[in-house]
Amino acid sequence: MGKGLGVSGSLFQKIVISYTYVAIWIFLSFTVIIFNKYILDKKMYNWPFPVSLTMIHMGFCSSLAFLLVRVFKFVEPVAMTRELYMSSVVPIGALFSLSLWFSNSAYIYLSVSFIQMLKALMPVAVYSIGVLFKRETFKSQTMANMVGISVGVAIAAYGEAKFDAWGVILQLGAVGFEATRLVLIQILLTSKGISLNPITSLYYVAPCCFVFLSIPWVLIEYPQLAAKATGTADYDFVVFGMNSACAFALNLSVFLLVGKTSALTMNVAGVVKDWLLIAFSWSVIMDRVTTINLVGYGIAFLAVCYYNHAKLQGMKAKEAQKKASQTDEEIGLLEKNQIRDDDGLGRKADSQA
């Protein structure tokens, strides 16, 4: 009985720890999104320089990642040759910088709630690009699911009270770049047996992003910042320091969440976070959320849930097939050994006779 209580207590402890990781990730992701919106929105902090903000994040994350990897030895760096870095990390870094730049820019033009609705298109983009790069198999059922997500998002966009075409283009561009980055990670790194956790990802990718972002910064934002250096573009070190620290902490929480739970848990947590952001955007920021918005996002939400469920079932089927294959190999090996043993016994009996 004591043993049963011990097992039950251990299971309860694991559940509590898992939910704690989920809560931390939701809180930090929620905080970073609202914080970025606060800084970039012209009606709030009024610092509409998304490239500069993203560069601050990348510079901060690069510095801390260097300390954690090289100085404190918190994680070990991976074997990274110059050729591999140029052929794999640089393209991924370029796409990541574009994704961050475009997504942060969208906060200037769109509400937080509508941006979360547009982000529901991520599975559509990842699947479509995966099919294009032959990482995914085209299936009519899955494509129908993708159409369902797209229709839901289109309805939500139709019902958006403050629709801004340029903001939508920026956010859709961010989704496209991020989806391409995720697919390229599978092609350029994972297929070569290289796995980067969030800290080593920042260690290798963040400096690359910083360099890429410096190009649009010099061309677009530096002249504006220089012109406003007389006082209309004040830089608050406390605000931007806290914002950068939150962005870095979010990456660490991803490391904990994925490492200690599962990808499915993260997907479910992401859905909870999206609904919380929509509710916060409506009730606190006072963004207008229409009934058509909610109906459209509800359709997209159900389609995304079905897609995640189908992926989970597919993963379970592959795992079961893998175990069955291993079992068949083990049975075959045992039968082969048994035949050898029987043959050996038969020879021994013949020699004794």
Rank of each mutant, 00 (worst) to 15 (best):
9 G>C: 11
10 S>G: 07
12 F>I: 09
14 K>E: 12
17 I>W: 11
23 A>V: 15
30 F>S: 01
32 V>Y: 03
32 V>M: 02
35 F>E: 01
36 N>I: 10
40 L>E: 04
48 P>T: 01
58 M>C: 13
60 F>D: 04
63 S>K: 04
64 L>C: 11
67 L>R: 05
69 V>M: 07
69 V>N: 07
69 V>T: 09
70 R>F: 01
75 V>P: 03
76 E>C: 06
79 A>D: 15
83 E>I: 10
86 M>D: 00
90 V>T: 06
92 I>K: 06
98 L>V: 04
104 N>L: 10
106 A>L: 00
110 L>H: 06
111 S>Y: 12
112 V>F: 11
117 M>W: 08
119 K>P: 03
121 L>S: 01
122 M>R: 06
123 P>R: 04
123 P>K: 01
124 V>G: 01
125 A>G: 07
127 Y>V: 12
140 S>Q: 04
141 Q>P: 03
143 M>E: 05
145 N>D: 00
148 G>S: 02
152 G>C: 06
154 A>G: 02
155 I>W: 05
157 A>V: 10
160 E>Y: 01
161 A>G: 15
166 W>K: 02
166 W>A: 08
169 I>L: 08
169 I>M: 09
174 A>D: 03
178 E>H: 07
179 A>G: 03
181 R>D: 10
186 Q>L: 09
188 L>P: 00
190 T>D: 14
192 K>Q: 12
195 S>Y: 12
212 F>W: 07
213 L>Q: 13
217 W>K: 03
224 Q>A: 06
225 L>E: 05
228 K>E: 15
231 G>A: 01
231 G>E: 02
232 T>I: 10
234 D>N: 11
236 D>M: 05
242 M>W: 03
242 M>D: 01
245 A>Y: 08
246 C>K: 04
249 A>S: 09
250 L>Q: 00
256 L>E: 09
257 L>C: 01
263 A>L: 05
264 L>G: 13
270 G>K: 12
273 K>S: 11
279 A>V: 15
280 F>L: 08
283 S>G: 10
284 V>M: 12
287 D>F: 02
291 T>Y: 02
302 L>H: 01
306 Y>F: 11
307 Y>Q: 09
308 N>F: 11
309 H>P: 09
315 M>A: 15
322 K>Y: 00
323 K>Q: 07
327 T>R: 14
327 T>M: 08
330 E>N: 12
331 I>S: 11
335 E>T: 13
337 N>K: 15
338 Q>T: 14
339 I>G: 02
344 G>Y: 14
346 G>L: 05
